[in-house]
Simulated assay, not measured.
Amino acid sequence: MSFKPGTNPVTFKSFGLDLVGDLYLPEDFDPAKKYKAIVGASPFPQVKDQIPATYGPEMAARGFIYLGFDYMGMGSSPALPGEHMKSRYMFRLIENTWDAVSYLGTLPFVEEIHGLGVCQGGSIIASAAVTDHRIKKIAMVSGMMAADPFQWTDRDMVNQQIAAANASMQKMYETGEPDYVNTIGLDDSQSREEFVGSGVNPMAEETYDYYGRDGVKGPVAVPTFTNAHIGDQGMQSLISIGEHYADKIVQPSLTIYSKSAFTAICSTAFVEKLTNEHKELAFDEFSHVDFYYKPEAVKASTDAVAEFFNA
């Protein structure tokens, strides 16, 4: 196919399915030239019209090719036959990412591939890079790489989450029907006041401002997105391998995060375990979700990532 500057709809194979993506190309794109390419990994439970649609144009403006895509079963990408939509399972996310790297490797104008993950995408990129050395450098923004100290601290709560996920999996197996839940406690129909007042999320205000019904990238603004997710998610997300293989990562890495964020430990605990060449960039002025969309935070992160990938 022919490519043009800007946004190019693409598909690539993974698990035998056609995953749907957008390939962002620089304004002065010339197919006869060679470019550094980036495979983007998005936060849970995002689709390509959220973080990738923000970071893609920014990285293209900085001279990179950027691939953002819907993971299998999410957004516009299909689920496997007999399986349900709205399911992001970590091990499959990693394999989808490997296939995205393979796709970028087929493009004649790509000379080098890097990985850029935001939030859960940070864990995906870090995990994928452990054994995929086609990825030459990785950058993680507000990343959830060291998820154990974040997710497993309150064992009673964890056991409740596991029990609910187990019950959901059993129900789906027996009925053959999907069982959808609001995994971050946010219903697509809730108002900001209702969600913040519920007290179920320590990052409620910034979470709603992005993901809520009236949020900048919520289900109204992004029709392919919903806060609902398949109910066995807890059985998947509680297994996070990124931090446990941190000392196996050989590629140079950049970790960007907010010092004040509730999730900061997911970056700092990860960095402590790294043995590769790595850089750490912590901000006082931004929150976890600020890096998703606020212009000043996005500029700070994408400028830093561009400099790191170009070094």
Rank of each mutant, 00 (worst) to 15 (best):
F150E: 10
F150D: 07
F150N: 06
F150W: 10
Q151L: 15
W152N: 14
W152V: 07
T153P: 02
T153D: 12
T153I: 10
T153E: 14
D154P: 06
D156V: 14
D156E: 15
M157A: 15
M157S: 14
V158Y: 01
V158N: 02
Q160L: 05
I162C: 06
A163S: 08
A164W: 03
A164V: 09
A164S: 11
A165I: 08
N166Q: 14
N166L: 10
S168R: 00
S168C: 09
S168G: 09
M169Y: 10
M169W: 04
M169F: 09
Q170M: 04
Q170S: 03
K171C: 04
K171D: 10
K171S: 07
M172V: 02
M172G: 02
M172D: 04
Y173D: 01
Y173A: 02
T175I: 08
G176R: 04
G176F: 06
E177C: 07
P178Q: 08
P178I: 05
D179Q: 05
Y180P: 03
Y180D: 02
V181S: 12
V181L: 07
N182L: 07
N182I: 04
N182M: 13
N182P: 03
T183I: 13
T183C: 10
I184S: 00
I184L: 03
G185A: 02
L186I: 12
L186T: 03
L186F: 06
D187V: 06
D187K: 07
D187S: 07
D187N: 11
D188G: 01
D188A: 09
D188P: 01
S189T: 13
S189M: 13
S189H: 14
Q190P: 03
Q190W: 13
S191N: 05
R192N: 03
R192M: 07
E193P: 02
E194G: 08
F195Y: 15
V196Y: 11
V196L: 12
G197E: 12
G197W: 11
G197M: 08
G197K: 06
S198I: 05
G199M: 11
V200Y: 09
V200N: 15
V200C: 12
N201S: 09
P202W: 13
P202A: 14
M203F: 02
M203G: 01
A204V: 07
E205R: 15
E205D: 15
E206H: 07
E206W: 08
T207H: 00
T207E: 01
Y208M: 09
D209R: 13
Y210N: 03
Y210I: 07
Y211S: 00
Y211T: 00
G212D: 03
G212W: 00
G212F: 05
G212V: 05
D214G: 11
G215A: 13
G215P: 01
G215H: 05
G215I: 04
